[in-house]
């Protein structure tokens, strides 16, 4: 069985190229792969497209905003392109308002379902979310059983930068509580899935098959977060 464990974060993202698309999970500052984002920052690749629920927070910890501030990102696809509070002027908000980067605003459930479509080989899907709003303008509408839906397309990516709680060396993953959020669907939607692991990377067989959240066939690389790594 292939051993997918990499010795460090830098080697696990070394083949990321300019212009690629990456997915970064996390919700409420939980479940982000901060160490892998830091490695992408060190790598210095540019013109990236980022897919994430939001585009960085106000604190100093490494997140998508770190790559945006370093001008490595040309476009964000996310559910927040303006702050929920006027005081939260992140680097992203400033640069987006100054037309220094592009953004696509997607309702959060549609964002998640577009990832799942990419993960599940679905060509497109109809959702009721956003019908009757500015965001549905220009999209194909269809009435099904008396309800109106809009057509949405899958959202794939070159890389997913994942945070898991536990893994085995084959890449079977487990998450803890709300750390799960976007992690499973991003891990399954991307071409190359890289995972930083909090607790332990165990031998195959040690994780009960009934308790695997993401099967290892979706996972390409694993790195154990060291004691002094970047935690939530």
């Amino acid at each position: 069985m292939k051993n997918k464990v990499f010795p460090d974060f830098d080697s696990a993202v070394a083949d990321m190229k300019d212009g690629m698309t990456f997915m970064s999970p996390g919700f409420g500052n939980v479940g982000l792969a901060r160490n892998l984002l830091a490695a992408v920052h060190r790598l210095g690749v540019k013109d990236l497209t980022g897919i994430s629920n939001n585009a960085g927070s106000m604190d100093d910890r490494v997140d998508v905003g770190t790559l945006i501030e370093a001008r490595q990102v040309k476009k964000m696809i996310c559910a927040f392109t303006a702050p929920t509070h006027p005081s939260q002027i992140t680097p992203f908000v400033q640069m987006y308002n100054d037309d220094e980067l592009d953004a696509e605003l997607v309702p959060q459930g549609t964002l998640a379902e577009r990832m799942r479509a990419a993960a599940a080989g679905i060509g497109a899907f109809y959702t009721p979310a956003s019908v009757g709003t500015e965001l549905a303008e220009g999209k194909e509408h269809r009435e099904i059983n008396g309800r109106t839906y809009v057509l949405e397309y899958p959202l794939p990516a070159d890389f997913a930068l994942i945070r898991a709680y536990r893994a085995d060396t084959f890449g079977n993953l487990q998450f803890r509580l709300t750390q799960r959020n976007f992690n499973p669907i991003m891990a399954m939607a991307a071409d190359i899935t890289v995972v930083e692991v909090e607790d332990s990377i165990v031998e195959p067989g040690e994780i009960d098959p009934d308790c695997v959240h993401v099967p290892g066939i979706y996972v390409d690389r694993l790195v154990k977060i060291p004691e002094d790594g970047l935690w939530d």
């Binding site: 392109t81 908000v93 308002n97 549609t110 009721p128 009757g132």
Partner: peptide, 16 residues
């Protein structure tokens, strides 16, 4: 006054 918006899950929840 600002470009973009903060939708989060509001449209999915409001519509469904």
């Amino acid at each position: 006054v600002r470009k973009g918006g903060g939708i989060g899950g509001a449209m999915d929840l409001a519509g469904c």
